[in-house]
Amino acid sequence: MSVKHALLALLDEEPMYGYQLRAAFEERTAETWPLNIGQVYTTLSRLERDGLVEGGDTDDDGHQIYKLTDAGRAELTDWFGSAVPRTQPPRDELAIKVALAVSAPGLDPTAVIQRQRSATMSALQGYNRLKRQTTDLAYELVLDSLAFAAEAEIRWLDHCDARLRRVADHPDGAR
């Protein structure tokens, strides 16, 4: 996840110091991906080294306020203007579990699938409960992202289920 670009985007709205950036990031993303303050300051110093932000004045309490440079603004424009790369798929415990369950001796893979389907549906119900409690657009869109990912997982589980059933009905390999 690009903390770097998230900080650039927030600084483009207004100059801020580290703790403000962390608070703004977490508010905007519904505290879904907590940032520790060390990570924020490390990132800021790298951005400063690369000329993308500059640490300017300190406020009355001695916090150093960072602001975006022209190079930082160009970098941000590039980020918003390009697609997020689909890199090497992250290791997915569920996909690995189902792949192994298919051939595990004495195990019913459809039971593994149904347990997961119920658990993922419960998570999805939780996201919708949170959506009912908020009117904040950014928060809602982050929850939607989690909800669509959970939905994709359930659809994939349905697909696994249907394929297993097909194989059970046609052990000779007919599709």
Binding site: M121, Q125, Y127, A150, I154
Partner: peptide, 14 residues
């Protein structure tokens, strides 16, 4: 058949 919509329910029966 849409899981996101089913998730508005109190209970989901499979």
């Amino acid at each position: 058949h849409e899981p996101r919509h089913a998730a508005w329910a109190d209970r989901v029966v499979f």
